[in-house]
Design a protein around this nucleic acid. Structure first.
Length: 881
RNA sequence: GGGCGAUUAGCGCAGCGGUAGCGCAGCAGCUUUACACGCUGUUGGUCGGGGGUUCGAAUCCCUCAUCGCCCACCA
């Protein structure tokens, strides 16, 4: 039993317990359980993804919530799964196949063959992240693992499409969309990042038709001029009024194009003349519609120039074409000037190339249940944590625009629309022979937005759905508030009539020590699995949680994980300390035998429990972690364990047993408080310490997972065990005394191994158990009581309370001057405090306006400082006399 | 251009109306029989600047500055 290793070795423990939990089906949710339900769905990671620190943060929080709920007597469902991640996965596989030489373009393989390859790839590389989540300790119900391309899930997606189509919310339209020339698909607005970059503003001369004069237009994209169909000016711009309806000759194309007047033009920008390229700019497209201009497509889907751009440019990449156009214009003397110009360019989030506005036919969704979804967050039916994200959400909801849901990809859910000749049908299954299906697939998010209920068997009214939907919480990053959170809310209301979740916890972003985003290209993203191997999963969890305050980004530092490991080790050794003392486990606590130290630690435990509950209520996990750290390390280990050595080493057997009972009481509560954060080590110790033995099998007997979450001790308990605030006050005074003596030790360089023999000068003696504790805490062999004592001049003295002096005889080791200096320095500090307190109290308004409680506090504080000053002055006087 | 956040000890952060705190680092000492992944003591701060409200402000209000995110069709 006492054979526990000196340092905690997580590797030996973690896999064992995870397997144990799985074997005993601890994470499997029972929809027929009488317990109240608590549920959460995992934000499905990409099937092909690997675990990042972001996942660690996100999933640790979910696990903490789930484990906390379990201990609180809930039937918990944490539903895991993965996302097919359309573009991301398809491009990874394409790259892989090209590298192998299996194809140049996916067309070489054809749709069916290519999809086979993707599935192969998914079988081979998919699900790594699931294994990694298990290493982290995630208590997911793996029997319910889902994938967004599971056959049942796919049916849900298509069913949802058909439903919205039939309601008239999904339509096909020809629009300017964001085109990704690398992935060669349309994207939604949300998939485009506006990146600020240093570009140029080229000023070109367009000659007026039939004259020497010319107009100057400014552009950031010279290559598009090949498709210009007009030059626009503001209708009221006095400079150009006479030119309305005239024409310019488009250089390089030698094509006359009209000068149009349109209010969209800002006369104050550049020359007030804008070249209009209807096919390649959304604003220009709008103007073209108003002025019935033709659309000349000069950039093809793959980003190269078309024949319509002219034979000199056709086939060039758009960026090469830009250079070529500028060079040609310059050689023609039509380049007036080039300015540096800071502007924002839309980039595809996926391919990281500039997107091309492109007119094409796509499927669009007019969002359902918008009003209801907006209201749900406004009224608090769905709560955001931190609350401020609701503002971002509401702003987007108010300005919501139709969603382009079709993608020109192969990996994804096929649009359930069928055509035969001129006929079109929207339904899940093929209408029969001769019908061909729409070739587009749906945006990945069009499947993820159904995640909370599609994973539970919707549209069937399954047991799981009825018990666990709506879910309780959602934990995700604010970067997908539009992509996912908002859309899930709308889907929830539209398809189930209920909000998909009650609370949304938004995590921060994980950054490196320099505040940079974690990214593969920067190489600043550590591998969580390596960290787990090095420090243990619990250490990683604790380190990350300690530094992850609600709503703030997290600066990751490996030191935090190290700290987590050290903390686990501390916990380990504190339990080892208990193990080294033989005695019955969890004995009765006898109120009559409790020392002040015992009472104090019970009160501190009580506070810690209350603080944990408050932290959980507000989703403040870093505060919970800080509470655990402070309580266990600074209070239990630093003070209580040290003090307990007095009765354990020198007390009678009754006191010894009682002390062990208190230790067991505190530790058995502490392990439970720790469990959501440190699942593995707490389970190991729960069994090692045999705290499981007295519990019913399904409430902590078999595993700490179901041990009841500690409740505040309560008034009855405090009364019965004599836990009062006096104890806190007395203990604070004693701790101060101990620190003072240790301070003297340090001041005079008395090594810790040199035992002191203290002299208590007073007309009464201290209780012997109190003396024993003080001796242990300061490293003294004895405290002798003397009613008469003549100390050598300058012998250090401290004051253990009214009417007594505690001398620290260290003959030959101290000198009076040093002691004088020490006291003088101390006195200075106290004088400053007294000064502060007196100024405050001297203010006539203070006494008049302040609450009586606060007034009393200040007066008491002043009195304390003053008596301390008297003591110090006394000691100084003795030195000087 | 709009919105949101941050600014507290060398570094990373808590505190959000009543004595400025934690961790790391620093300094000094310690193989004290749970733990050197440890113990003890200790040095660092007019809480970004300026105004205001208040008996009292790191904490509430205004303003400025710096940094960072998000949203927005000025080419």
């Amino acid at each position: 039993m006492s054979e526990i290793p000196k340092a905690y070795e997580p590797q030996a423990v973690e896999d064992k317990w995870y397997q144990y939990w799985l074997d005993h089906k601890c994470f499997t949710a029972n929809p027929r359980s009488p317990k109240p339900a608590w549920s959460i769905v995992i934000p499905p990671p990409n099937v092909t993804g690997v675990l990042t620190l972001g996942h660690v943060l996100n999933n640790t929080i979910q696990d903490i919530l789930a484990r906390h709920a379990r201990m609180n007597g809930h039937e918990v469902l944490w539903l895991p799964g993965t996302d097919h991640a359309g573009i991301a996965t398809q491009s990874v596989v394409e790259k892989d196949l090209r590298k192998q030489g299996a194809m140049k373009h996916r067309e070489d393989l054809g749709r069916e063959k290519f999809l086979e390859k993707v599935w192969d790839w998914k079988e081979k590389h998919g699900g790594i992240i699931i294994q990694q989540l298990k290493k982290l300790g995630a208590s997911c119900d793996w029997t319910r693992e889902r994938f967004t391309m599971d056959p049942e899930y796919s049916r849900c997606v298509q069913q949802a499409f058909v439903d919205l189509y039939n309601k008239g919310l999904i339509y096909r339209g020809k629009r300017m969309v964001n085109w990704d020339p690398a992935a060669q698909t349309a994207l939604s607005d949300e998939e485009v990042d506006m990146i600020e970059e240093q570009g140029h503003l080229w000023h070109f001369k367009y000659p007026l038709l039939g004259g020497e004069a010319f107009l100057v237009v400014a552009t950031t994209r010279p290559e598009t001029m090949l498709g210009d169909e007009a030059v626009a000016v503001h209708p009221d711009d006095p400079r150009y009024q006479s030119l309305h309806g005239k024409q310019v000759l488009l250089p390089l194309r030698d094509k006359p194009i009209p000068i149009i007047a349109d209010p969209l033009v800002d006369p104050k920008f550049a020359t007030g003349c804008v070249k209009v390229t209807p096919a390649h700019d959304p604003a220009d497209y709008e103007m073209a519609l108003r002025h019935h201009l033709p659309l000349t497509v000069v950039i093809a889907l793959d980003g190269t120039m078309t024949e319509a751009a002219g034979m000199d440019f056709a086939g060039l990449d758009r960026l090469e074409a830009r250079k070529a156009v500028v060079a040609r214009m310059e050689s023609l003397g039509l380049l007036l000037k080039v300015e540096n110009y800071l502007h924002r360019v839309g980039y595809s989030q996926r391919s990281n190339v500039p997107i091309e506005p492109y007119l094409s036919e796509q499927w669009f969704l007019r969002y359902p249940a918008v009003a209801q979804s907006t209201q749900a967050v406004e009224t608090g039916q769905i709560k955001f944590h931190p609350e401020r994200w609701s503002k971002t959400y509401l702003h987007w909801m108010v300005n919501i625009k139709d969603w382009c849901i079709s993608r020109q990809l192969w990996w994804g859910h096929r649009v359930p629309v069928w055509r035969r000749d001129a006929e079109t049908r929207c339904q899940v299954d093929s209408p029969g022979q001769g019908w061909t299906q729409d070739s587009d697939v749906l945006d990945t998010w069009f499947s993820s937005w159904l995640w909370p209920f599609a994973t539970m068997g919707w549209p069937e009214k399954t047991d799981t759905l009825q018990k666990f939907y709506p879910t309780t919480d959602l934990v995700t990053g604010p970067d997908i508030i539009f992509f996912w959170v908002a859309r899930m809310i709308m889907a929830g209301f539209e398809f189930t009539g209920q909000p998909p979740f009650r609370n949304v916890y938004f995590t921060g972003l994980i950054r490196d020590k320099q505040g940079r985003k974690m990214s593969k290209s920067l190489g600043n993203s550590p591998d969580p699995l390596e960290l787990i191997a090095k420090y243990g999963a619990d250490a990683l969890r604790f380190g990350v949680m300690r530094s992850a305050p609600l709503g703030q980004d997290i600066l990751y530092d490996e030191q935090q994980v190290e700290l987590g490991r050290n903390f686990c080790n501390k916990l380990w050794n504190a339990c080892r300390f208990r193990q080294m003392h033989p005695g019955p486990v969890q004995g009765e606590i006898d109120p009559g035998l409790l020392s002040n130290d015992d009472k104090w630690i019970l009160l501190r435990l009580d506070s810690a429990i209350a603080e944990m509950d408050a932290a959980f209520a507000h989703y403040k996990f870093s505060e919970a972690a800080a509470t655990l750290y402070r309580f266990f390390w600074s209070e239990y280990c630093d003070w209580y364990v040290e003090a307990s050595k007095a009765p354990l080493q020198g007390g009678d057997s009754a006191h010894k047993a009682n002390t062990l009972a208190v230790i067991d009481f505190v530790l058995s509560h502490t392990l439970r408080l720790f469990h959501p954060f440190l699942p593995f080590i707490t389970e190991e110790l729960w069994h090692d310490m045999a705290y499981s033995q007295d519990m019913p099998p399904d409430q902590g007997g078999r595993t700490i997972l179901f041990a009841p979450w500690p409740k505040p001790l309560g008034e009855d308990f405090k009364l019965h065990y004599g836990l009062s605030d006096d104890v806190l006050r007395d203990m604070a005074a004693r701790q101060e005394l101990v620190i003072e003596i240790r301070n003297v030790r340090a001041q005079f360089r008395i090594p810790a191994n040199k035992k002191l023999n203290l002299v208590f000068h007073s007309d009464f003696d201290l209780p012997s158990d109190e003396k024993a504790v003080i001796q242990i805490l300061v490293g003294a062999d004895s405290i002798k009581h003397r009613s008469e004592y003549q100390p050598p001049k300058g012998e250090p003295v401290v004051y253990p309370g009214p009417g007594g002096k505690l001398f620290i005889p260290i003959a030959g080791l101290f000198d009076a001057d040093a002691e004088k200096a020490r006291l003088a320095k101390e006195l200075l500090k106290i004088e400053a405090e007294i000064e502060k307190a007196q100024t405050k109290l001297a203010n006539p308004d203070f006494a008049r306006k302040v609450p009586p409680q606060v007034l009393l506090e200040h007066q008491q504080r002043l009195a304390d400082w003053q008596s301390k000053r008297a003591q110090l002055q006394d000691a100084l006087d003795a030195l000087n006399s």
